[in-house]
Nucleic acid binder design. Sequence first.
DNA 1: GACCTATTTGTTATTTTATAACATTTGATG
DNA 2: CATCAAATGTTATAAAATAACAAATAGGTC
Lengths: 157, 157
Amino acid sequence: MSTCHNHQHCIDSALNNAENLCQAAGARLTPLRKQVLELIWQSHKPMGAYDLINMLADVSEKTIAPPTVYRALDFLLEVGLIHRINSLNAYIGCMEPSTKHPSYFLICTQCHTASECNDNGLSEQINNLSQENDFVIEKQWLEVLGLCRNCQIQTSV
Amino acid sequence: MSTCHNHQHCIDSALNNAENLCQAAGARLTPLRKQVLELIWQSHKPMGAYDLINMLADVSEKTIAPPTVYRALDFLLEVGLIHRINSLNAYIGCMEPSTKHPSYFLICTQCHTASECNDNGLSEQINNLSQENDFVIEKQWLEVLGLCRNCQIQTSV
DNA sequence: GACCTATTTGTTATTTTATAACATTTGATG
DNA sequence: CATCAAATGTTATAAAATAACAAATAGGTC
């Protein structure tokens, strides 16, 4: 991903965004939570909880137990700053945390990049489908696994 | 679910279907695999692997180790006789195993009934979205959590 | 600032879900 | 009936997540 955009800028803006959102919502983006969010934003690939634990241990020079990270993840999920990729047991930064929205992802099985696609047409279709079934939506996840543009090229060479 | 249809018929037809499909595909629906499929079809609720292990232990009077069940589940997933509900780490019988198709589910958070909805419009929408992103689909899952008709009524009383 | 309370984080142990590695059995085929 | 591949059994372990309780810390109130 660092090939096609300035990723440091990406991280910075995500963190700034997070600060603002939390402030507005009266939620506390503590150092730990911010650190976890920052680690998640290191890449555009979904990151496992235990990956984060290891990264935290590396950074902070003290071991971090699972509950610590899971609580930070729960907070970030709750506030909408990250999404969970269920098919991978992994977590990824939200591209548009300012508005609550469903979690739709295209996930490359080769390079593991996950790209969020907030598609209104798709949302409507799912809303309609739910209405037809008298079903009231609480949460929703779409996970599409496959090959991204880049990896199709690599693979076909 | 047993309230609105003859569930034994449901199970029977699923098992028959499975027999035929496996025969046609040259896949072996062994007694164990059939038994696991039958247990999964006991309800329209997603069933955990360890639930199945316990049920098998009850039925067969001998303990069944995890790998045994997971291998049966892998087989059934492979052939397309069941789906995995990633958000619940659980497995459920496929309603239309004769054709390969994506896994779209409405899952009630109250009664835990999961209903598969094979919607072409939705499929097309997702295909379009993928094409726009030059993404080649391998697998896909949609999981919508919420309240089914019945449970809305129960809840609002 | 001192005190109180709620929130957050630390810590230990355990649960839940899934797989690795190797042994044994079964079943189709020559 | 001998052989080989596929399926199942067995033991141990990995990976993901949570329960339960203790300690620390941030905000609000006097």
